[in-house]
């Protein structure tokens, strides 16, 4: 985190804690990805929603890691990892190249923590690049110079800069897609592998004339900038998760919305009937 180097961590979640139920699925590591570090050190967190989506989510995570010089967490789970679906294999020509830019040697001292004005990404120089010799490490860095610093104001600034860098990634997130009407009685909000169960449930409920819509998050940190306004267009929000309530805590604290949870922590993915009966109970 403090080194601000590109890294992609793929967490294929399974039922925990500890070795738990190794072959069973769970979505219980969201808080681990969000907060499981010492100090305040936010990182981008992405979650694919289908087996095929794992490909593009990983590509996107690599792009973000390199563009912003940051570790990125991907949360999949046992259900996605063991799942399959028809998937149109992409042509490499259609996938944009990820451009990586390195620092260039100049006459002055290389400043490893000088940041890009827009992204706040620091400049990258790798061993072997002449004139760019520098040291990085786990101790707090001085803004711009990257030297070790215990200065209180500098630490406060660096904590904020690292957080601001991650918060600014909302510029990478496309507008939230709402399936169904953009306003109504209930929005079912999901993330990760629950996509299929939620979508088929919402389709069934809508065909019965229920005012239900579905939105699914790929970006869990930062949350999409337009998410709050989308949530407010519905009377109620239901958040099904294969955990005892993690995304719901983020949503409640971020948007002060009295969302409801559907939480089954049984090592199994949701069934359509479980979601439908919960929606019918709420409406």
């Amino acid at each position: 985190m403090i080194a601000e180097l590109p890294l992609v961590v793929i967490n294929v979640q399974r039922a925990g804690p500890s070795t738990g139920m190794p072959t069973k699925t769970e979505q219980a590591d969201l808080f681990l990805a969000m907060y499981g570090r010492n100090g305040e050190s936010p990182a981008p967190v992405l979650a694919p929603s289908t087996p095929g989506d794992c490909f593009f989510t990983t590509y996107e995570a690599c792009r973000i890691a390199l563009k912003y010089m940051t570790p990125v967490f991907i949360l999949t789970d046992a259900f996605l990892a063991n799942g399959s679906e028809p998937w149109m294999i992409p042509s490499l020509e259609d996938i944009p190249t990820i451009d990586v830019s390195y620092a260039e040697a100049s006459d002055g001292h290389y400043m490893p923590y000088e940041r890009d004005e827009e992204t706040l990404a620091r400049r990258w120089a790798i061993p072997g690049m002449s004139g760019l010799e520098h040291r990085i490490g786990g101790l707090e860095r001085e803004h711009i110079s990257g030297n070790i610093s215990y200065d209180p104001d500098n630490h406060d600034l660096m904590v904020r800069l690292r957080a601001e860098k991650v918060a600014g990634m909302t510029r990478e997130i496309p507008p939230t897609e709402v399936y169904g009407d953009s306003t109504g009685d209930l929005l079912v909000l999901g993330w990760g592998s629950t996509f299929g169960a939620i979508r088929t449930s919402v389709e069934a409920l809508r065909s019965e004339g229920k005012s239900v819509s579905h939105a699914h998050l790929k970006w869990l940190n930062p949350l999409p900038a337009d998410l709050g306004e989308n949530l407010l267009r519905f009377q109620k929000v239901l958040i099904p998760e294969v955990n005892s309530g993690q995304l719901i805590k983020l949503i409640r604290s971020e948007f002060l919305i009295d969302a409801e949870g559907l939480n089954l922590v049984r090592g199994k993915p949701f069934r359509k009937s479980q979601i439908i009966s919960k929606v019918e109970e709420i409406l």
């Binding site: 061993p127 072997g128 010799e133 520098h134 040291r135 990085i136 490490g137 786990g138 070790i148």
Partner: peptide, 13 residues
């Protein structure tokens, strides 16, 4: 140690 060498250096984990 790496902080005191004017080379590439990484004080890691």
């Amino acid at each position: 140690f790496p902080y005191y060498m004017d080379t590439f250096g990484f004080h890691t984990i």
